[in-house]
Amino acid sequence: MYQKIAVPVDLAHVDRLPRALQTAADLSRHYDAPVTFVSVTAETPTSVAHSPGEFEAKLAAFAQEQSQKHAISADARSYTSTDPAIDTDRILRRAIDELGADLVVMASHIPGVADYLWAGHGATVAAHSTASVFLVR
């Protein structure tokens, strides 16, 4: 039913991802759909990487490791932004279109009062993407 699964991840918060990663892996095996891990990084050095290039390498390594751990086909796609705090939602939507993903699996927090002011990335992607979106809480 699904051909390609996009899984947006934040490498600075890998500890919050396991449920989403497991969900994505299960769906990937069930539908025999490859997974692409997508991430947006800052142009400036971050806690994850000194440069966008290093970040790309780390994301690729992460995808490789997930692929082996869950026995799925996985690759990675990283995007850079001069202002990730604002641009991430827009870039994720663009990435989903570019990859031709028809299913998005991503971790999201349980909405609170603050979500009336600023919705989480997951909520925003779900609201605007043409793909099916599975938010894992």
């Binding site: 490498l11 600075a12 918060h13 890998v14 500890d15 806690s47 994850v48 000194h50 290039g53 290093e54 390498a57 780390k58 390594a61 992460f62 490791e65």
Partner: peptide, 13 residues
């Protein structure tokens, strides 16, 4: 950050 699976910063690409 729990990224023990990733290479640490010694050999930076």
């Amino acid at each position: 950050m729990s990224t023990s699976d990733e290479p640490e910063t010694e050999d930076l690409p």
